[in-house]
Design a protein around this nucleic acid. Structure first.
Length: 267
DNA sequence: CGAATAATAT
DNA sequence: GATATTATTC
């Protein structure tokens, strides 16, 4: 309808627009440098993909940590965000525990060895509690199993995992990374010298079908790439068919095949 | 320190 | 709304 004299008001409108350098850049932080310093917020929040040895930076999304301000109850009011145990952080944790040995692996020493900025003893204590529960259940789950010769036969498989694999439903830990259901992890003699951690589980034979390259395919695994199996073993992941290995000797125990999942190489 | 329990997050 | 994860309590 009214197209004709739009040019004039548009020009006026355009005149009043702020110039480019009057605009706050999209990337500009909303936290002033002063505030950042006071609350120990790193300006760039480097990725934690650090080179080994370097202290890990604060694992918190926004690390509102040190209440080093001029004594106000203000400081007490600020609560730090929940810690997220990323695989990197967890790796540090596991390494620290392993390095300390079971005797000295208590929250305080673990925390010190981890050397992570902003990590508290309580953080570690909480995680350690969960980690111990995991270890306990894992030990309980696979008590006996004498495996030599390529593969370990797992006597007792975690009941939840067993049931879910036996039934026709898709196992939840392949769908939901955060499920507490887990596969039992065992030490498996690797091809040559060293042992390595691996997860084994039983799968119904009928669900497999052979594919030309000699490997086996399973409907629950196809398309499942880079899926974490258990929060306590974040480095163990299903990697499509590449991680599927079948012991021909063990091929038929009770109508099951044993699937072995190996951890990723990268670290 | 660690188990139990509460509080959040998904 | 249940479950998993993290925090807090004792």
């Amino acid at each position: 309808m009214r197209e004709s004299n739009d040019k004039s008001w548009f020009s006026e409108w355009e005149e009043e627009l702020p110039s480019p350098d009057e605009l706050m850049p999209l990337s500009k932080t909303l936290i002033t440098p002063d505030l950042a310093r006071v609350f120990d917020i790193s300006p760039l929040q480097r990725e934690v993909s650090d080179h080994l040895q370097e202290p890990v930076q604060s694992p918190f999304p926004v690390s509102a940590a040190q209440f080093a301000d001029s004594g106000e109850e203000n400081a007490r009011a600020l609560k730090r965000p929940r810690l997220v145990w990323t695989p990197q952080l967890h790796k540090r944790f596991v390494d620290a525990v392993a390095q300390l040995g079971i005797k000295n692996a208590v929250p305080k020493t673990i925390m010190q060895l981890m050397n992570v900025d902003g990590l508290t003893r309580e953080n570690v204590a909480s995680h350690l509690q969960k980690y111990r529960l995991y270890l306990k259940r894992m030990q309980h789950g696979l008590s006996s199993g004498g495996g030599e010769g390529g593969f370990i036969s797992v006597a007792a498989v975690d009941s939840a995992a067993e049931n879910l694999f036996t039934g026709s439903s898709v196992p939840p830990y392949l769908l939901r990374p955060n499920s507490d259901h887990f596969l039992p992890f065992v030490r498996v003699p690797a091809n040559h010298h060293q042992q390595q951690m691996a997860a084994t589980c039983h799968l119904p034979v009928g669900h497999f079908r052979s594919v030309p390259n000699g490997q086996l395919e399973h409907p629950l695994l196809s398309g499942q790439i880079q899926r974490q199996l258990h929060p306590m073993e974040p480095h163990l992941q299903v990697r499509g068919m590449e991680s599927l290995e079948m012991p021909s000797s063990n091929a038929s125990n009770g109508g099951r095949k044993i699937l072995t999942l190996f951890p990723n190489e990268d670290d």
